[in-house]
Write a protein that binds this DNA or RNA. Structure first.
Lengths: 149, 149
DNA sequence: CACTAAATTTGGCATTTACCCAAATTTTTG
DNA sequence: CAAAAATTTGGGTAAATGCCAAATTTAGTG
């Protein structure tokens, strides 16, 4: 019952790279330092700082300068969707002859452009699988939505 | 036996918008005028001219100024891939609870980032379907590739 | 505790994609 | 042929990404 308090989202609000940042931060759990992200995503620290600020201004992160970032409540809910999307789509592609690695890197290229609506439909059509090729799949939101019908 | 004369391509060489241009031009067949494209893609004619020049410089189109464009041999082969990719991916999504329209517009958003490798695998895994939700599917290249194994 | 090294942030720039507007230029047409 | 329609040019803008150099802050160490 956390799902309802955030405004609707389409899943298309973030650019590809910002999606990477949020997923990375969620997967690290807790506070993350600029350097961790820079080396994780292979970009210059100054680039990281700037992107982090944008994500913070948009409400996804709390950024304490020189200290690090962590997800806001909204950022966490959103990042959970991002990870679910990644996993559902990757799993889907493995059903069509792609290896886990291929599926994963393929999906990384386009996932930012797949809507939440589509993901939810795919997810329920697959029977809300619990495991994907890159980890466990959580279904907070998509299950809720269905019961609203 | 036209498929081999072009260099390998990954399917990722064109930006999303350029993909739209090529698909549009292929579907029009024959020579296309700037205005047709502008109104078809809903952009200013000057934008169209510029994009057309870029596609021509990259070898996909012949552009005769003030007259129009048509696909080079290479451009046509490439555009055929683009259309096949669009149709295969759209068809795929309709198997997961999306309507034809949803699938089509969803795919339009991300198709430019799906590799030819992935498309070929999906295509053969689906048994090279002949019809998609937005038209007939041609399999020039993907069938050839398989026999090369 | 001062000082240097490491981490972060700022400011300045560059590139790619995409687009628009206004002003030429070319083609078409009445 | 002259006005209208179509195209192209030239000049700009904005978002997304990312690097470098310089400044700032934090941390580690005698």
């Amino acid at each position: 019952m956390n799902e309802q308090i955030y405004p609707e989202f389409t899943g298309l609000e973030l650019s590809p790279r910002k999606v990477d940042y949020l997923k990375f931060i969620l997967e690290k759990g807790s506070t993350v330092k600029t350097t961790e992200i820079s080396s994780g995503l292979q970009v210059d620290p100054s680039t990281t700082t700037k992107t982090l600020n944008e994500l913070a201004n948009a409400g996804y992160l709390n950024h304490i300068p020189y200290r690090g970032v962590d997800l806001t409540e909204m950022g966490e809910a959103y990042a959970q969707f991002l990870v679910r999307r990644h996993r559902i789509l990757s799993l889907l592609l493995t059903h069509y002859g792609l290896s886990s690695e291929e599926a994963c890197s393929e999906v990384s290229r386009f996932e930012a452009f797949v809507s939440r609506d589509a993901v939810d439909k795919i997810c329920s059509s697959m029977g809300h699988p619990m495991f994907g090729v890159c980890g466990e799949i959580s279904h907070g939101k998509c299950l809720h939505e269905e019961s609203h019908h």
